[in-house]
Write a protein that binds this DNA or RNA. Sequence first.
DNA 1: CATATAGGAA
Length: 662
Amino acid sequence: MANLHLTGLTPFLHKSKATRRPFFSPQYKAFKSFSSANAIKSPPPMAHNQNHQIQILCKQGNLSRALKVLPLEPKPTQRTFESLILACCQLNNPSYGSVIHRCIIDSGFDTDPFLSTRLIDMYSRFGLLSVAWQVFDNTPTKTIFVWNAMLKALQADDQAEEALSLFSEMNWTGVELDSFSYSYALKSCIACSADSSSAPNRVKQIHCDAVRRRYDSHINVATTLLDCYAKLGLTSYAEQVFDEMPVRNLVTWSAMISCYVRNERPYDALNLFCEMMVSGDMNLAPNAVTIVSVLLACAGLAALSQGKILHGYILRRGLESVLSVNNALVSMYIKAGSIVLGRRMFDYVNSCKRDVVSWNSLISGYGMYGSYHEAIQVFDEMLQSGVTPSVVSFVSVLGACSHCGLVEEGKRIFHLMTEKYNVVPHVEHYSCMVDLLGRAGLLDEAVKIIEEMPVEPSPQVWGSLLGACRKYGHVEYAELACFHLFDLEPKNSGNYVLLADVYTKAQMPEEVDRVKKLLEERSLPKLAGCSWIEVSKKIYSFETVDEMNPQIQEIHSLLVELVTAIKRHGYVPNTKVVLYDLEQEEKERLLLRHSEKLALAFGLINGKKGEVIRITKNLRLCEDCHSFTKLVSKFAKREILVRDVNRFHHFSDGVCSCMDYW
DNA sequence: CATATAGGAA
């Protein structure tokens, strides 16, 4: 069971990158001029113990009064400065920070490693990395705390390369590293998105180093390591770290669960969660973070019953008021097939507590159900409520347009985005536009978008074009898309299959064979079609070649019965989707073994009458299954909801909610 | 004198 992600979108991070050691950087100059202009002249008349007084004022958060007392004689103690810096961080006030720094220099504390640690941390919070570097460089005796503060600052500012070179400098200068050093360095490894091919080796190298110095048994180092492997998709490495850990806590378990979720193994995630729950360890009571991961797993599996059970647990634990949990619930209900319950969860949240993520979930949810009007209505409501749409908001709305074939509306929103909201289109938005135009058959226009886009087309962009080519049988553009795709993601077998599809449709058997050979040569496993269905709170999954199910005979005979019946209502098996060169009868037999048909028959046999049949598929729904299910919904008088990789199809009385546009 | 360590929502 793989490839379940519905809308694969990552948030975008925009952070300023300060370069190392610009001696008189603008920030530093600004800081100097500011602090001298604001130098405080006269000390207050008298105070019994001014150091103590300042520390009290800092604790109360009254920094301005504390600073008025500051330039005292004799000079303030180190403790006093520490209180000032901490208060300044708490108040998030960079101007006061500069004033305090000035006073520290004036008092001759600027070489003190303890205060340097605090200052570096403060400047890191304010995003003033170049000043942090100055403090770092001006500290002659660097304790491990000073090194770690700088390392953490770089890591927090996404300056991964800088962080790693600092880490190697630490190794080289012979500083006694501690577990924090390893944590920060590891986190930096996976942040190097620029050349991610080296990330696995970097992590492994630090792993070896940590093992050598016996730091791998530290729970934070091990957990960070686990998470790094999880984010790199190296699940087996993550499992190994998890298994070999001497002690595990809630964070470790949650990290492992989230590893399975993000690597498309929601079933394993749920199993591990159950294992944690039955351990009976009171320290392993799941918190909001754990719950969010598990809800994601339920969403991936479309495990509605499991999700509801979890919802009950959330209510008992009083976690329903946590916004992230609520958002995860909205998304879980939507992806598990109930837009109604998703909407109810959304409405349940106090409107002032909603954030842009809540809105985006609902918008993309309506998009997946093909409910364009609701999607756009919710989008408008969001704008009216004063929430600024994010990059993802536009992806969600454009996706909704795409699913409904509303080309003009999509173009209008794309313009709205750039003109009114000044959002510079990301590659994701171009990908949406290519998808929108491609699905509507406007292939030339889609290619024009790709040619003219100012950013490098991502695999998703070419993938959208290829998908459109499959739909419309455009060989030339399909070859163009694959030329890039085979280079960008050579191991994605789905692209080869799509290209073969295009050639099959165009009746070019030699080319079909050529692509198949390519697939074999590169020994890429074709992702097996898999469908699953929840019946009586249990999930049953089916693969195309599935003889393991004890009811398989019953399922097959029901399918044959159904086919005979619906053929009278005009069903013609669409044997074009079969890639193999076989007799017509054999092709029809193969069609009946498609996993979604098996799941459908299983649902008809075992499900309760009158209940909606919910099926989930790991690939795109095939055209034959689509028309088959439409007729079955009419013939068997059942509502059928099928979720494929992209969207939902709601079949009822012979009609699908997608109106045959998908 | 000591770094608020590590896991999460579209």
